[in-house]
Every structure is written in C-alpha cells, then in structure tokens.
C-alpha cells in the first residue's frame, strides 16, 4: 500500500512516516499542495493521501479540490490531517472530496482506525477490498 503525506512540517511528515511505516505502508512526502499534485502525476497513484490544511503555496482545501478534478485519481482516498476543526471547514473539506478527517494531535491507533474506515487497514477485514474503492465525493 502507498500513502502520500502532505504537510509543510518535516517533523509531522516524519511522525506519520513512522506510524504508517510500522503498518507496512510505503510513504511518499510532499511539503505543499503543488508538490503533492506533482508527486501524484509522477506516480504511482497512492492508495491514500494524508493532507494538512494550512500550508504555503497551495493549501489542503485547494489541494483536495484539485485532486478531485482528476477523475483518474478516484481510487485514491483523501484524509485531512489538521488542527483545523471549525465545523464549517470540516464540512467544506468533505464536500470538496476528502473522505476522512483526523484532528491533530492524534494517536497512532487513531491513524490505523481511520484507515480501517476507508477500507485500507493493512490487516483489513476480508469484506473490504480497497482495490475496488472509489473515493469521489
């Protein structure tokens, strides 16, 4: 499984890389929304993008909107990982096409449980086959 971690903080990217790495997930990193788009274009398509909100160049909400313009990326789940927890903003992100929402700070267990909700847990239940998943809003 492949994950793309998009966050302007190297410390946060490192932390998520460790948590995902322990679950056997390959991790690519991008420091802003524009770099994330470039990384997905360069391939391979991640199974999930973990996206911070407040970033320079292109923020998380713009990134989600942009990613969902690409119909060929519909199999990629998007999870916001951010301190941004104003109700209205959470709804905006979900409407733009984010599939899950993780509020900072979070425990490692919470990451795993959120991946399970997306059908992406490494030891996923047999019923959930993420290969067929479509994550368009």
């Amino acid at each position: 499984m492949h994950a793309l971690v998009v966050d302007d903080s190297r410390a946060m990217r490192s932390l998520l890389r460790q948590i995902l790495g322990r679950l056997g997930i390959d991790v690519a990193e991008a420091a802003d929304g524009r770099a994330a788009i470039d990384a997905v274009v360069a391939g391979p398509l991640p199974d999930v993008a973990l996206v911070d909100w407040h970033m320079p160049v292109m923020d998380g909400l713009e990134l989600v909107t942009e990613m969902r313009r690409h119909k060929e990326w519909r199999h990629m789940a998007i999870m916001m990982v951010t301190t941004e927890s104003e109700h209205e903003n959470m709804v905006r992100a979900l409407l733009a096409g984010a599939n899950e929402y993780l509020i900072k700070p979070f425990s490692a267990d919470a990451v795993l449980e959120k991946l399970s909700l997306l059908g992406l847990a490494p030891e996923a239940t047999p019923a959930s086959d993420h290969q067929g998943g479509e994550y368009l809003p």
Partner: peptide, 15 residues
Amino acid sequence: TALEINRGLPASHLV
C-alpha cells in the same frame, strides 16, 4: 476531547 473524537469515528458522523 479531540483525542477521543479521533478514535474510529467516521468524519461524516463527526460533522
């Protein structure tokens, strides 16, 4: 708390 709300609650239910 935020830590509790992160634990396995689907975002759709959170909002």
